[in-house]
Nucleic acid binder design. Structure first.
Lengths: 218, 218, 218, 218
DNA sequence: AATGAATGAGCATTCATTCAT
DNA sequence: CATGAATGAATGCTCATTCAT
């Protein structure tokens, strides 16, 4: 529905203005030109909006990945490399995704109805299995039947790295200038593909903080 | 100081009763038999307590890891395996650690003074470097100079997996019975060593949800 | 609106019970049978209520004064005398006015949004100019164009005297019995018209503390 | 005693940094290099410091005025003029005086022991009488026996005007640019002598906001 | 005289959510 | 579908003051 869409969109853009906290319902409603009460006609709780937002982007990401993995023209090695690259680029192009992903457990889920959390998790598991089974094929059998599990590790590594390397501006400035904080200086979009390459057993020396350039948006 | 200690201890045990939210200052003070004002003599904000708690356990964990990595009697392979195992056991024995680690970015740090966050991060970076340089030695040169970076990946994978696999009881029950939620059923303490083994390039097939037994506490 | 009105009224009567401090929001809300949150639907801060209250009474007072000054049937001298008398009577009949006026700078304004303070001051200046220009006419030209400035002096003298002569009961009792405190014993409502008469250059010997009777309410 | 002195001095300079609120005891103690507890060896409450400070400056001011009024070489008119001028200059040179004077009733006295308030008021009445009786002599008999009462009016007019014309910086800027706020734009140190001249029955047209230059410090 | 650790009352304000219309 | 007035729980934090040492 249109209304629901406009709420999601407004919520996202408000959120991106201050990604360390969820915008209030009244700000969201206001941004849609809606009354506060109307908001609750479309979402059960405030956090439900952001769970839906996350789910949407998850779908989109998996879609992308699946399309890629289905491509028969690629060698196994190339398929993984391509996957890592596209994945990274997607994350870079969707700044809300990781920021929300990281709030999912601590802030969003505890404030959403159990049923909604389950629906979210079920969809997620579904997507993971789907993409996982495509991924397996390229993994020389060693991950037979465990592609989804592998993807979970990929995702875990991703959000874990994001939490370590995404830092508010004020802190970021201090990190740049303090040599003791070397390790935390790495650029997430450089470090992520390197870490994934390692996970996938592809040759890759870890990057040192800030030396390399991040993957560019096409 | 003794008071500080008792606040940390009280805060931790209250926290573990409801690990999805930080206990209020008045509950903590009450649990110590202290006046609310006294609390603020020892910590600047509520969140500062939990950051300190996390830092302490981080120290302890790294200490443990370093001791292990310094042991000359182990082969390279064994050192890594031993590291993974001890690490996992430590996490299992310190239930507050991961729960807090996962709140660090979203809930704790935004509510702590910049200076305290920096101090925390500096200590963390310090420890990472220390343990990292010990770890490198066993990595056949391929991680020369990047041991801390490797450890960061280890830690990232850890907290990411925890976020995916640690689930509140009500949801956990449903996950167990819903075949669609297969992937999310894995036991963290089984999945973690497997994932780390993969990261370290040691042969390891991913585990399927819930099939294996977790590492036992000694 | 009705709600706003009832908040103002409740706030005023609570305030008059203890005019040395502003009642808390929860007391005010309670006195209206309103939830605390509702209060903030009508006023931005606690102090805003009292600023509004002061503004209202200011309006009323100036209205009264203007009506009087517009009366063509009075001689110049009589107009001033009449003004002073009505003014005094108004203050006597509105015990909250002076008590608040005296807190305006030190307690109220610093806790109200800049915009609200400005709005208050603008309204006040407006009223002062309006009444000032009426007042000038009776002043034999010597205050041409400065009636508002004259009124400011009147007001200043008023609140200054109030601060000196309004004394909490416990102190008042001691003042009465201590001959050294002679000067501070004057009754404000006697002293004020005398002081204003002096300001306006009308013959008037200062009153001695406590000897005369205050202007009576009609 | 020296300690007492240093507390008063520290308190004053801290106060002048933020004259809209009294500095906290711990800041004062800190500024003296004293422990918080030590503060209470010299003053019964925080506000007592500021009452003492006010009393001191009151003394000094009256001293000055008396010296002046005792000078036999001046004509009556000149004595008054001279009084007004010296008075104004004193206030300008002692920025804490008026700021405190205005807080006396609303903030300071309610938080000081009754006995201290009475002592303050007694001293004040004493000084007023002393200077009042000197002042009377020059007033052509019409204020015989009421010099102290006259001085009270002077003081009342002073603190009243200060309250109206002293405005925090942020507001002051807006007042300057908003024509509607004309009346409130007057410079206190220009307006005060004019208003006093009026009170004393000396020819004086009120000043318009901001046009004249304030009395300069010598 | 001096300390400084301990106290604990006190209060404004926010905001998700509901529900009568 | 839409409204928006009303709710009221929930909580961090300050700071003047005391008192055992």
């Amino acid at each position: 529905m249109l209304r629901r869409r406009s709420i999601l969109d407004a919520a996202q853009s408000l959120y991106l203005e201050h990604p360390r906290e969820l915008p209030s319902v009244s700000r969201i409603a206001q941004a849609c030109g809606l009354a506060k009460g109307t908001f609750y006609l479309y979402f059960r709780t405030k956090e439900a909006v952001f769970l839906a937002m996350l789910a949407e982007q998850f779908d989109e990401l998996i879609e992308l990945v699946c399309a890629l993995l289905r491509d028969p023209s690629l060698s196994d090695e190339a398929r993984i490399g391509s996957f890592v690259q596209r994945y990274t680029v997607y994350l870079q192009a969707h700044p809300a995704f990781l920021r929300l992903a990281v709030m999912a457990n601590t802030i969003i889920e505890p404030n959403v109805e159990e049923a909604d959390v389950l629906a979210f998790k079920r969809a997620l598991a579904e997507r993971l299995r789907e993409a996982g089974s495509l991924l397996e094929r390229g993994m020389s059998g060693c991950f037979e039947g465990a592609g989804s599990s592998l993807l979970l590790r990929v995702y875990a590594l991703t959000i874990g790295l994001w939490q370590m390397l995404d830092v508010p501006d004020n802190i970021a400035a201090r990190i740049k200038t303090d040599p003791a904080l070397d390790v935390l200086r790495a650029n997430f979009f450089v470090e992520l593909p390197a870490a994934l390459a390692q996970l996938f057993g592809m040759a890759s020396r870890p990057t040192r903080g800030g030396t390399a350039e991040p993957t560019r948006l096409p």
